[in-house]
């Protein structure tokens, strides 16, 4: 297992936002977390990436606990993420958005930076080169020197993924990547996500609202409702699970 979450709990005052959540993501998987609004999906992401600290339970990446680490340390361990509401560095260029994500791997200290030694310049060359190559994968090389805010919505989402991948993660967390996209864009996105897994050999854990997309690309799903896991299994099973249908649509319906 790449990621193992056991008995995770988090309370916000009286609200038990995450309750005994368990999750096992095998290496190389494309795994989905679904659930209605307010089910605690993003909270689980925030717990994994170190934004929140759990009240109890453990989160292990390749057997090593991530609990208590700073978000930047979690990134250094190999977990990168995107955000539901896009959080790019808007006034900086597309290129700089990606170059910033090379922070941990820059490999030179403060004094060489002050002196701008040849070694520093070579590292900067390499970082820029790698960033441009990554932007080419996402078809963003043409706009590399434009400010991130000038990109279309779809391209901003892509840039967020590029930025996350620039940290060379083992596990990529995608928080509602299809939010705000039209059906055609969603189809493209599904292709892109599958391609990323192949190309970068990265395990992907995604949160999604769009049932159709999740069902079509994820191998396994976990369904959350009110902070609890209510179902877990391959898409076909989830599709017909009465508890899931109830959580999403109420009693007595079937999902197309």
């Amino acid at each position: 297992m790449l990621l193992e979450i056991s008995d995770l709990n988090l309370r916000f005052g009286g609200l038990h936002a995450v309750r005994d959540v368990r999750l096992q993501v095998p290496k190389g998987a494309l795994y989905g977390i679904i659930g209605p609004n307010g089910a605690g999906k993003t909270t689980v992401f925030n717990l994994i990436s170190g934004v929140y600290r759990p009240d109890s339970g453990d989160i292990r990446l390749e057997g090593q606990s991530l609990v208590g680490l700073l978000p930047s340390q979690v990134v250094a361990r190999g977990v990168a993420r995107t955000f539901q509401n896009i959080r790019l560095f808007k006034d900086l260029t597309v290129l700089d958005n990606v170059r910033i994500a090379h922070y941990k791997g820059a490999g030179y200290g403060l004094w060489p930076a002050f002196l701008r030694t040849p070694g520093v310049r070579r590292r900067e060359d390499a970082i820029t080169e790698q960033s441009m190559a990554l932007l080419e994968v996402f078809d963003l090389a043409d706009v590399a020197l434009e400010p991130a805010r000038s990109l279309s919505y779809g391209n901003q989402r892509k840039l967020e993924m590029a930025r996350a991948l620039a940290t060379s993660p083992k596990l990529l967390l995608l928080d509602e990547p299809a939010a705000g996209m039209n059906p055609a864009e969603v189809v493209q996105l599904a292709d892109l996500i599958q391609d990323l897994r192949q190309r970068f050999g990265v395990t992907i854990l995604l949160i999604e609202h769009q049932m159709k997309m999740v069902m079509s690309i994820c191998e396994r799903l976990t369904v959350l409702d009110f902070g609890q896991v209510i179902a877990e299994g391959p898409p076909e099973e989830i599709r017909n699970n009465p508890r899931v249908l109830e959580a999403y649509l109420g009693r007595g319906v079937t999902l197309a």
């Binding site: 700073l70 930047s72 930076a113």
Partner: peptide, 27 residues
């Protein structure tokens, strides 16, 4: 030289969005 280095990009990232900066690995 500081601004146009790795740490300097981190400084700019903090101005833009500190939480996002931390979450892409900037200490």
């Amino acid at each position: 030289n500081f601004i146009y280095s790795n740490a300097g990009r981190g400084v700019l990232a903090i101005r833009e969005d500190e939480v996002a900066a931390e979450l892409v690995g900037v200490r």
